[in-house]
Design a protein around this nucleic acid. Sequence first.
RNA 1: GGCCUUGUGGUCAAGCGGUUAAGACGGCGCCCUCUCACGGCGCAAUCCCGGGUUCGAUUCCCGGCAAGGUCACCA
Length: 562
Amino acid sequence: MNLKALAERLLPGEYPSADDYEALYPPRNLPKGAEVTRLAPSPTGFIHLGNLFAAIANERIAHRSGGILYLRIEDTDLKRKVDGAVEAVIRALDYFDIRFDEGAEIGGDETYGPWYQRQRAEIYRAFAKKLIEEGRAYPCFCTEEELSALREEQTAKKEVTGYYGKYARCRDLTEEEIYKNLDAGKPFVIRLRSMGDPEVKHTFRDEVKGEITVPENDQDVVILKSDGIPTYHFAHAIDDHFMRTTLVIRGEEWLASLPIHLELFEALGFRRPRYGHNCSLMKQDGETRRKLSKRKDPELSLEFYRKEGYHPRAVKVYMLTLLNSNFEEWYLKNPDADLASFPYKAERMGKSGALFDLDKLKDISRNELSKLSVSDMGAFLRVWAGEFGSEEERGFFADEEKMEHVLALCMGAGGKKRRKDFETASQAMDFIRYFFVRTPRVDEYRADPATRIAVLEAFLASYDPEDDSSAWFEKVKGIAAANGYAADTKQYKADPEAFRGSVADIAEILRIAATGKANTPDLWTILHILGEGETKGRMRAALREALTEEIAALRSILEERK
RNA sequence: GGCCUUGUGGUCAAGCGGUUAAGACGGCGCCCUCUCACGGCGCAAUCCCGGGUUCGAUUCCCGGCAAGGUCACCA
């Protein structure tokens, strides 16, 4: 068979030679040990936690080694294209401090571009043509119906499905048959003529999994679709070769197609990059665990974290603790270090899928937020409220000085002991709400209305906004003593029978009266921030409430006596 | 179903033939304390199962089992 003529008929025209391309995309001039990694999303614009997970790994490895991280867009499947998607991906990753050195929409050195696969049609065809000339690829005229019939037949016979060996019908078409099909205008795809035998296994060193065994490929996979666009597999081999990728870190769902890729590199005569297949994020779903899915799990969307108001650094730290088993320990020792200084290692990546743990993320989030300065926290919350908050919440920022005092209190700023009251921006805004507006009571009083009346009246009578913290608390103790409560907890614990309770109970009445909550940061400071008018107003409102309850109680007693 | 991968407390995990089997989150308890948060201390909880190899296996080998992934002209 005249392969040269067949190739010309299938893919007519002059194409640059392999050597031309080698010269066009020369090996990169990088220091020894520098890794070239990439992110190669399809342009759906949707980037989720799983993508971020892999992105962080690729970014760290490239930049730790003094190498290059680039962005390639795998737009070979038209159905997936969404406008503005590439910008969205770049923006989403930038939020987590992931910056590309080159790639689609990045600018900079154009040597290894273009980075949109659709714009690279020529190079794929050139190499497909070369493979046809060498007898390593051939046209296939099978229709989709024929292929699915084949699949059914194989399934029924419990044989491996696919286009291989004796099932690869177009593999041994005669020259005459091929040209007859071509003349009839039948659409065709180009398939690899596989030389492998799946019974033959090779051991392969994966950068994250270690030694793995991989069988040879025997599938005559499609390399060029009928529209002349390459499949992922073919584009991967050509692009990662000519973009001079040194290390492909990708999800372990690709492990199954590794044999195909290895054969492709071999057939093309390319030296293959190293591979690292990372595990995917899992989620507990009833009895079993499964890969986090875009449709079922809102927490997979990066948008979820922005809406909830997780700090990007918290998400990144959590990803890193899952990604590198020694990160957490390192971070514990270097809590203030730049994340970029962590010695990231591919071999320290987990081999098995980690369950996504929201509790852990929340803990990390509390820690990260507590490290922020008051002004950074203010800025973080303001930006969040601007985008996701309510009108009311945006109003909280009107009085900057007050906001600063509130945040300083809730973060324990200036003091020796910092607080960790804030978990996310949305939770924080809710947490500080009572400073700005009177909120409905969320916790119940333990004390009866009569006691509350006595305590609140005594408080109001003795309240002096000029009191400092200790003078103020002395008064509270006085109120406790006057009402049969122990003035300090130790006293109460020593002899619980002797008292109705302790200062803690008195403080609780005042706390709920002022904030609606039984648990808050330091009460004196809160009252100080609220100011004299608001403090008295809230105490009086609580007093009225207690009086109303008491009157109602007395009435019902009266009713019973009648 | 075939093939590949993985299997240490509820979760993330260290471990690389001999350890009281680290640490973190979560849970529980105690201390600190006007509540909470912070901080401190402590407790419960783990080597998937069965065979080997070995003086000795969580660790090495074999066989099960379980979980995950994958079997497209999608990536």
